[in-house]
Simulated assay, not measured.
Amino acid sequence: MSPAQHRHVPDHLSATLSALADPNRRAILARLAQGPAPVGSLAAPLGLSLPATSKHLTVLERAGLVSRHRRAQWRDCRLEAAPLRELAGWLQTYRRFWDDSMERLHAYLEQLQSQPDPAAGDQKHPGR
């Protein structure tokens, strides 16, 4: 597949990360983690208009993070966690890297602390 063709293949991870890049969209997801909610109740705490909130919801919907359902005259929005699970799996690889790096740093610091302090002079043979 050529690079030009590859750009048109849907990249779910990029869509998820792009959707999460906006703090209003993260706030919407945090609210939806508590349960379904109508658009109006999502807009009010953010101080956003209904059209602005709807645009954010469209981005979240395209990323697969939100679904909308009709209930009488209301449209409830629900969190869809599958893309977040995919993101968590991808991040887990880097968490292992970070944990390994921190363990190496910890071992190095312990090694440094166990060595005599050259600024204090030779503690085993004072007066030399």
Rank of each mutant, 00 (worst) to 15 (best):
L48Y: 13
A27E: 14
P45R: 04
G40D: 10
R26V: 10
I28W: 06
L32Q: 01
T58S: 15
I28E: 02
L46I: 10
S41L: 09
A44H: 11
A33W: 03
A44Y: 09
R25D: 02
L57R: 05
V39S: 00
L57Q: 05
E61I: 10
A44D: 11
I28M: 09
L48F: 12
T58H: 15
A52I: 03
P23C: 02
A43D: 08
S54V: 11
L46D: 13
A37T: 11
G40A: 12
G35Y: 07
H56I: 00
A30I: 04
R26A: 07
Q34S: 14
A52R: 07
S49W: 04
G47M: 11
A33M: 05
L60F: 03
K55P: 00
R31F: 00
P38M: 08
A33D: 07
P51D: 07
R31S: 05
G35L: 06
L46H: 13
T53D: 02
L46Q: 15
H56D: 08
A37P: 13
R62L: 10
P36L: 06
V39Q: 00
Q34E: 15
L48K: 13
R26L: 12
G40Y: 08
R26W: 10
L46N: 11
E61R: 15
L60H: 03
G40P: 08
A33R: 11
P36R: 13
P51V: 03
E61G: 13
L48C: 12
L60W: 06
